[in-house]
Design a protein around this nucleic acid. Structure first.
Lengths: 252, 252
DNA sequence: CGGGCCCTTGAATTCTCTCAAACAATGTGG
DNA sequence: CCACATTGTTTGAGAGAATTCAAGGGCCCG
């Protein structure tokens, strides 16, 4: 467990030079806000694929912003059945629950190697006390997660297997394009079919057969590192999903 | 459409005498907070069972707190398949999304006749500017909704039909006991089996057969107005769910 | 070379859906 | 008061979807 929290030392990204702040997708923080956030940030955490970021039942002292890589949130039943709740991409906040309530009720795991900005949860009240705009943004971020979960719930509850799969892949691909400010090009989603199965609420076997159907239509192609999305609008059509126009969104 | 918004006139509950504030379940607002909320509240809305409170795609000018009755949030696909996302009980906030973002991405409907406190969404920023504690509470409320959705997602994705049904009924029954500060006694959930089906992501027919299994075990009894929960801990056992200790929670 | 991880495929079983019909309770208009 | 429509619950049967079980293949790494 070396390199857990590197504070101020080499390799740490100063908030003033935050790559997310200037990439055009996120709302730019004001100078005063950056100043606050850079004091709020107590360090940076680098983890390998498969590492636990937060664990259900924890009372971790930290909250994170994902700076680089992918992570996913999940819950499990006592007998190990697992449900992936959502994926986190750069700019996403992890563990806000942990900061507002007593304990985590879900787990978060690194899907690729990741870099996390580390914040201390007991200082979250400073945001509300001194930075009303950031407080608003925090609520906005929570409401956005809620919207994503709403749509996912609709998907699992009412879409057929192939629609569900198409929706998941389309939605993630769309998020990648957004956060990377791309208009075209291939997106590769870095997960295994087991992750997809646990997200869709289907078995591995049936997920595999469903993905095959999408591959036959040349909408996706499965390969070593994960899923290559070849036809985003084709997927959206299968899923009966249309994306929303999205303005620049806040982050912390 | 009479009696839509009665402002200040007869029948409106003054915030100073808010029944939720003193019932022991919710955190009590301070005098200053009550003063703010009572100015924030622009009226009261009474609706019949089945009425729409908010509609997907709307840019409603209002946000609500449910003061009396039941409501439910839902989303629908273009071909009318419907998924119930969550239920609202007294003290729950409806339409926060509407206040933070441009438009509603889900609908809300009255499940019983309801009374709603009406707030103007364009004054939400006042909360963040002048009332940091209420701002914190707003975020807390959004995070709570997220937790409920997380558990529901786990349920639909990974629990069997009978576990799912048991979880839903147990959870709602538990919420009623909490909000009414009861330790015992029967809870009656005021919905139809169609609502249950749309919540569980199952067909009506299969939902009926699944509920029958719970009724045979004497865990519930279905009757005219809805579902009577006869054995909460029995349901919790079937669902493999254990409730959390919950402190007094905020509301607005 | 062997082991682990991931993807793939077939077959039998179980679950869930649709279709169809019937029943009970309620309310309405004649 | 009855005939009729409406809404919600119940049941059976056949079709379709998804699961489990089982086995094999590809690939990488120690």
């Amino acid at each position: 467990m070396t390199n857990m929290i590197s504070n101020g030392s080499g390799g740490t990204t100063p908030c003033q030079a935050c790559p997310l702040n200037s990439n055009g997708h996120f709302r730019e923080l004001t100078g005063k806000q950056i100043q606050f956030v850079s004091r709020f940030k107590v360090g940076e955490l680098n983890l390998e694929r498969g590492a636990s970021i937060l664990v259900e039942g924890d009372h971790s002292a930290y909250m994170f912003t994902l700076l680089r890589g992918w992570a996913f949130r999940y819950k499990a039943l006592p007998d190990d059945r697992r449900q992936v709740l959502n994926y986190a991409l750069p700019g996403d906040l992890l563990g806000l629950q942990n900061s507002l309530m007593s304990e985590m009720q879900h787990s978060v795991e690194a899907l690729t190697s990741v870099t996390l900005c580390v914040f201390e949860k007991n200082r979250v009240e400073e945001i509300f006390r001194n930075h009303p705009n950031l407080a608003f943004d925090t609520t906005w971020i929570a409401a956005r997660e809620e919207r994503i979960l709403d749509e996912h719930l609709l998907s699992i509850g009412r879409r057929s297997a192939i629609e569900r799969a198409a929706y998941l892949l389309a939605f993630l691909s769309w998020r990648v394009m957004r956060v990377e400010q791309r208009k075209s090009g291939k997106v590769v989603l870095p997960f295994t079919q087991t992750h997809v199965a646990d997200t869709l609420g289907l078995s591995m076997v049936h997920t595999n057969k469903t993905l095959k159907k999408l591959a036959v239509r040349d909408l996706i192609k499965w390969r070593d590192g994960g899923c290559e999305v070849r036809d985003l609008s084709g997927l959206m059509e299968v899923a009966k999903w249309s994306d929303e126009a999205e303005e620049r969104r806040p982050f912390i």
